[in-house]
Design a protein around this nucleic acid. Structure first.
Length: 425
RNA sequence: GGUGAGGUGGCUGAGUGGUCGAAAGCAGCGCUUUGCUAAAGCGCCGUAGCCCAAAAGGCUACCGAGGGUUCGAAUCCCUCCCUCACCGCCA
């Protein structure tokens, strides 16, 4: 959520930054300003009435204690009470309208983000490793099916299309990857592990900005008051919701393994082959709650923490800086990490396995997540998150990259202690 | 699922219809004094919003959340959320 004060004081700046996204959202600013003016007007009026009521009510109290008549004043206050009821309704309606508008406006892209219309304007900031030399790479579906690593028919039988059922060595590989990543982040990168509930309240979903805008992409329960979390970003970022942290406690760094649930409505036909885009997938998440002046350096280190996973596994990848037009709703700046999948598409493709973002105070304002600074003032924290990393795509890239001419899959050295073998055959 | 007890400021904890944004204690900040690894005294000390060009100042709201009763609600009523205890059920 954007700061209404910023909108009020620098509307041109806000409009200009929003315009770089190319979604036409800058036109909403006029509405916000109009409603804001109305809201304040009705609020001032309401407060005037309340003040009057308070004054007269005290007078009544005084008269009664002195046994003096007060019927006249009581009638007067009763009338003011009616006006207050109307005024309250008006003020609340404006307040609600303003909030709804603000909840549906994207974050402002950071000034360093390249301006562009869509993904074609994204910028590759670095590439790590090299494409593996494979004579005739087989894709992960063929590999996985042949080696019995997962069974998509079983998954479909249980849950329909868009689900995975890992089996045998595949299930074990999944487990090994989870442990490998969590161990890495907790021991080497200093994150605190949390194993959270997978079902979250509506408020939490609003806090991290999945709602209200993207409700149709979410799995709702209990009359949509609870949701299956689409990412552990929701749980981890909301841990300190509505709290005021001590500056000394920042940065807070959390990691979690959770399944993630997404309807992927409208995504039919896109990247749908095999296990690349599914309704439920496992993911290791990294979340940081930090002081505002540190958030951009924290974004760099968070991204580096996620990259380390791929480096240790010896997987070729690149880091892409998203342009303004490709940036997610709440993000001010995002780096995507894309791992090389030799069997995807025609001759290989990069698959997004992590999206590392700085939300600045966009989420913090929604969830009233603050810290007390050195002057004792309450200020909003900045929040960041990224996958470290998402499992099915990592799984696919891994088995494709390490496939051997004899049809087996070699296990990278760093993963062997977790997997308990050096190959799958 | 049932029964009961609760949710008050950073913390502890008073307060059952009127000058209560809320006693008191602790913590914190400032000053004074005495001095030495601290004590005493005094003062300050919640959050948010609105008015104001701004400062000063003023006003409003907030005692888990939302409604209601009333001239007036932390206080009475209703609904919901959460915490704790016991019972039931259960992996």
């Amino acid at each position: 959520m954007l700061d209404i004060r910023l909108i009020r004081e620098k509307p041109e700046f806000v409009r200009a930054r929003l315009a770089t996204r190319g979604g036409g959202e800058e036109t909403k600013i006029d509405d916000v300003l109009r409603i804001d003016a109305e809201r304040r007007k009705s609020e001032t009026e309401l407060q005037r009435l309340q003040s009057e009521r308070n004054r007269l009510s005290k007078e009544i109290g005084g008269r009664r204690s002195r046994k003096e008549p007060s019927e006249e004043l009581e009638a007067q206050v009763r009338e003011i009470g009616e006006q207050i009821a109307g005024s309250t309704a008006r003020a609340n309606a404006f307040d609600q309208e303003q909030r709804n508008l603000l909840l549906n406006i994207s974050n402002l892209p950071h000034e360093s983000v390249p301006v562009g219309k869509d993904a074609t304007a994204n910028r590759v900031v670095r590439t790590w490793g090299e494409k593996p030399q494979l004579t005739a790479p087989v894709d992960h579906v063929a590999l996985g099916t042949k080696l019995n690593l997962f069974n998509l028919e079983w998954a479909a039988k249980l849950s329909g299309s868009g689900f995975i059922c890992f089996t045998g060595a595949g299930a074990k590989l999944e487990r090994a990857l989870i442990n490998f990543m969590i161990d890495l982040h907790t021991t080497e990168h200093g994150y605190f592990q949390v194993s959270p509930p997978f079902v979250v309240r509506r408020d939490c979903m609003i806090g991290t900005s999945q709602l209200p805008k993207f409700e149709s992409d979410m799995y709702g329960l209990e009359d949509n008051q609870l949701f299956l979390a689409p990412t552990a970003e929701v749980q981890l970022t909301n841990l300190h919701r509505e709290e005021i942290l001590n500056i000394g406690d920042l940065p807070e760094k959390f990691t979690a393994y959770t399944p993630c649930f997404r309807r992927e409505a409208g995504a039919a036909g896109r990247d749908t082959r095999g296990i690349i885009r599914v309704h439920q997938f496992d993911k290791i998440e990294l979340v940081k709650v930090v002081a505002p002046d540190k958030s951009y350096e924290e974004l760099e280190s968070l991204t580096a923490n996620a990259e380390r996973v791929l480096q240790l596994l010896g997987l070729h990848y690149r880091v892409v800086e998203l342009c303004t037009g490709d940036l997610g709703f709440g993000s001010a700046k995002t780096y995507d990490i894309e791992v090389w999948s030799p069997g995807s598409g025609d001759g290989g493709a990069f698959l997004e396995v992590s999206s590392c973002s700085n939300f600045e105070d966009f989420q913090a304002r929604r969830m009233q997540l603050r810290f007390k600074d050195r002057d004792g003032k309450n200020r909003l924290c900045h929040t960041l998150n990224g996958s470290g990393v998402a499992l099915p795509r990592l799984f696919a890239a891994l088995i494709e990259s390490y496939q051997q001419p004899d049809g087996s899959v070699r296990i990278p050295e760093k993963l062997q202690p977790h997997f308990g073998a050096d190959k799958i055959e």
